[in-house]
């Protein structure tokens, strides 16, 4: 049985799938860059993204099918994502609903809205009929387009978060009390941050729907976990490679790169013939492991067990053999 399993696995099939994994990874890298704004800069765990990603895909598909230019369709998708972010921000800053719950509420509301937009659970976007930015028909073009979009986005984000307003958003996420004392309206900064973040996430939804040739009301399910996986994988790898020399543009680049790594890992898992039903389980495990690594590393440096071992003063250790 084992030999049958191994003989059914060929390295060529892994290599064949690699370009497609890279293309999808870059699209999810866009999503991860959006999520990075809320998760790392604003310190706001925003669950809106599961909904706004699908909204971005739905709007892109429907407008393109109705004859819109693909760029205009993507722009509309971004605008819809911005609105979704503003709704979550409104729930949190104006109505006092806790961040996670605010995001969940918008996400659930978007499910109905997405059904309305799509007029059903899903909608096909025939790749040969429309002039798309990228599609799985031409993977190389998709990689180039995805890479370019990531690069432009990273440059814009690097610039924006270096401006006065971007700095105020970062300060709000880091220290709200200090920000208020410096005259920053932290509620507004949160709204702006959530709006930009969800706009970018909706853009990635629009890209993904073009790549896969359809939009589905469930296409964003678990998006936050994949986005977090990309962020954390990117951070761990970036930290290992650059360490102290890491700057903001490096961080952003590694977040996008994290998306690619994630999809290559998923590609390997599929190549190993893991049942595709278990993919989400596997994703959750990856995120858990990468979240735990920095913590465990820190723990291994300073632990009570090691301190106990180092301590030679008292030969009678608690829990050790007692004198007769």
């Amino acid at each position: 049985m084992l030999t049958a399993y191994f003989s059914s696995i060929h390295i060529t099939s892994l290599l064949n799938a690699l370009p497609s994994n890279i293309a999808q990874g870059l699209i999810w890298g866009v999503m991860a860059l959006g999520l990075y704004i809320t998760f790392r800069l604003l310190n706001f765990a925003d669950l809106t993204v599961d909904g706004s990603m699908a909204t971005g895909g739905a709007i892109t598909v429907m407008l393109t099918v109705n004859g819109w230019n693909i760029w205009l369709a993507l722009l509309a998708a971004v605008a819809a994502g911005v609105c979704a972010g503003l709704v979550t921000g409104f729930f949190n800053t104006k109505l006092g609903i806790p961040p996670i719950l605010s995001g969940i509420l918008t996400q659930i509301a978007l499910y109905s809205i997405n059904l309305h937009i799509l007029g059903g659970a899903n909608k096909a976007l025939p790749m040969d009929k429309y002039n798309l930015l990228l599609s799985s028909r031409n993977v190389l073009q998709a990689i180039i387009a995805g890479g370019l979009i990531c690069t432009v986005l990273i440059c814009i984000m690097y610039w924006y978060f270096g401006t006065e307003q971007g700095s105020a958003i970062r300060a709000t996420g880091c220290n709200p009390a200090m920000s208020k004392a410096q005259g920053v309206n932290i509620g507004n900064m949160q709204l702006v941050g959530l709006a930009i973040s969800n706009g970018i996430v909706a853009l990635s939804g629009g890209l993904l729907s073009q790549y896969s040739g359809f939009a589905d009301v469930n296409m964003g399910r678990g998006a936050i976990v994949i986005g977090l996986a990309a962020i954390i994988i990117g951070e761990v790898i970036g930290d290992a490679l650059l360490g102290k020399h890491m700057n903001f543009i490096g961080k952003l680049s590694f977040v996008a790169f994290g998306g690619v790594i994630y999809y290559i890992v998923i590609g390997v898992v599929i190549w190993l013939k893991m049942p595709s039903n278990d993919l989400k389980l596997f994703t959750a495990l990856i995120v858990a492991i990468f979240l735990a690594v920095p913590y465990l590393q820190k723990q291994s440096k300073t632990s009570f067990r090691k301190a106990g071992k180092r301590s030679q003063l008292n030969p009678k250790k608690e829990g050790g053999a007692k004198d007769a």
Partner: peptide, 18 residues
Amino acid sequence: ENLAMANRRGLRRFLRWG
């Protein structure tokens, strides 16, 4: 960056360099 935040206390924060 902290000093720059404080240097703009009470001013509007736009898209000028931080």
